[in-house]
């Protein structure tokens, strides 16, 4: 059954990204981005703008390249041996893949939260303070203490952990760990936060807490989130991008994508015909 459906899907042509991939006042803009893992091409000609102080959700079936695309935005793919990227990715009109771009500086501006909560095997305090120490953001111990408290408060975790700041971060629950990772990311005050399925390992209650957190963070930060949950995309994002087999099929306002999708593939996916 599924196989037959897939074959039908493949017959639908993907020429050009439909919808409204380009906007004014873009934080990130990518043009003609191709990504290869060795011989295999994972992303085909992705063109999209990511708006400032917006949440953009990237959805699509497994293996469609949405995580790969996300990891291009802070050059995390550099660590993969035979990964090649061509095309332009601009952050504030600066090409992040140009020679002068320092990936360390880029990652301080573009933070990332991963699918599986991955706190360092250190205390909660040290987890949050690590980035600030790394980049020399806090001049004194008092400043650092303030920064840790502020970051944990903004991640909605401070009340729960204020008495156990020096206990290991790995001892927290999954949802708390993920909020700790978010606190760790916002402690260095990045401009963009990339989230790669941040709630896929969490229960619905923890998910709701993190979604609320995302919405409140989007006032200050630009957020790009990869998710498998279409409800989540609908709940938190202003714009939605749909990926399919490495192609960016459709980008539009979230409402439009979910109520009136332009492309047949998008419609098939959001109506649950496959995926």
């Amino acid at each position: 059954m599924i196989n037959i459906k897939k074959r039908e899907e493949l017959d639908i042509k993907i020429d050009k990204t439909v919808g409204k991939p380009f906007i004014n006042d873009a934080k990130f803009s990518t043009r003609n981005v191709d990504v290869f893992y060795g011989e295999k091409q994972a992303i085909f000609d992705a063109n999209i703008d990511i708006g400032k102080n917006q949440i953009i959700a990237m959805i699509g079936p497994s293996g469609c390249g949405k995580s790969t695309f996300l990891r291009c935005l802070n050059r995390m793919n550099d660590t993969i041996q035979d990964c090649h990227i061509s095309g332009d990715i601009k952050l504030d009109d600066e090409d992040i893949y140009q020679r002068q771009q320092d990936p360390v500086l880029l990652r301080a501006r573009v933070g990332m939260v991963f699918q599986k909560p991955n706190p360092f095997p250190k205390s909660i305090y040290d987890n949050v303070a690590y980035g600030a120490k790394l980049h020399g953001l806090a001049g004194s111990k008092i400043e650092l203490d303030e920064l840790v408290e502020k970051s944990l408060t903004r991640a909605g975790l401070f009340k729960e952990v204020k008495d156990s700041l020096h206990k290991p971060g790995t001892g927290l629950s999954g949802g708390q760990q993920q909020r700790l990772c978010i606190a760790r990311t916002i402690a260095i005050d990045p401009e963009v936060i990339l989230m790669d399925e941040p709630t896929s390992a969490l229960d619905p209650i923890a998910t709701a807490v993190i979604e609320e957190l995302m919405i409140s963070l989007s006032k200050k930060y630009t957020i790009a989130i990869v998710t498998h949950s279409m409800q989540q995309a609908a709940r938190v994002s202003q714009r939605t991008a749909y990926f399919h087999l490495g192609y960016l099929v459709e980008v539009n306002d979230t409402n439009t994508v979910f109520t009136n999708p332009e492309h047949q593939l998008t419609e098939n996916y959001i109506t649950g015909r496959f995926g």
Partner: peptide, 20 residues
Amino acid sequence: SIREAALGLGASRVQTTFHH
């Protein structure tokens, strides 16, 4: 995941290796 966490925060490769 520990390496990714450190790199994602903007640690260099040497820092990632020796800190974590």
